[in-house]
Amino acid sequence: MSIFTRGFSGRGRDDNPALPPGQYLTEDFPVLSAGPTPTVDKADWEFTITTETGETHRWNWEQFMALKIDQVDTDIHCVTRWSKLGTSWRGVSLDTLFADVETSAGYTMAHSYGGYTTNVPLDDLLDGKAWIAFEFDGEDLDPEHGGPARLLVPHLYFWKSAKWVRGLTMMENDDPGFWEQNGYHTYGDPWQEQRYW
């Protein structure tokens, strides 16, 4: 009888239907970053949505915190193959932020403090699918995890959930963001295992 081992990669999806293909379960919250952690003071923080006409909608921290706040319980999936189930966040829905935004563009580029970018179709940000999250597990979002606020798009691989998000720019075309320019999939659906192009 042959004996195979899974090694040290943790429990695979055979044990858990909540795990997308090729993912394993982790209880940790690994930190992955393409650069140094920016220091963003809430007093200086702002979030903007800029449309294709150049119109900019702007919220400072106080205005942002006065918006309707959602409790979000969700699973998250990283392209490096870890998934974390049942994570708990608080944030403002993109539906709330887009309520008064007039646009006919179908795509967005998320921009972060520190220069990171990632592209997300507008449809994937609306209808209760995405938030600007500022709290994780009942605590202020740690700077290592994107605090004071990060994009949270849990149905896509987690590189799309840009840390230290500062704004969204509407785009007519699905231009690639930072990692999407060199290898990462333009859409990134974990259930389709869209890791690379």
Binding site: S33, A34, T80, G115, W179, Q181, N182
Partner: peptide, 26 residues
Amino acid sequence: VYDAAPGWCVRCHACGDVLMTLVWAG
């Protein structure tokens, strides 16, 4: 070098801007 496997982000030691990225795509 910032290791964000499966990618690496390589930044200039002088200004911190991105020099190159490397990605193991499969």
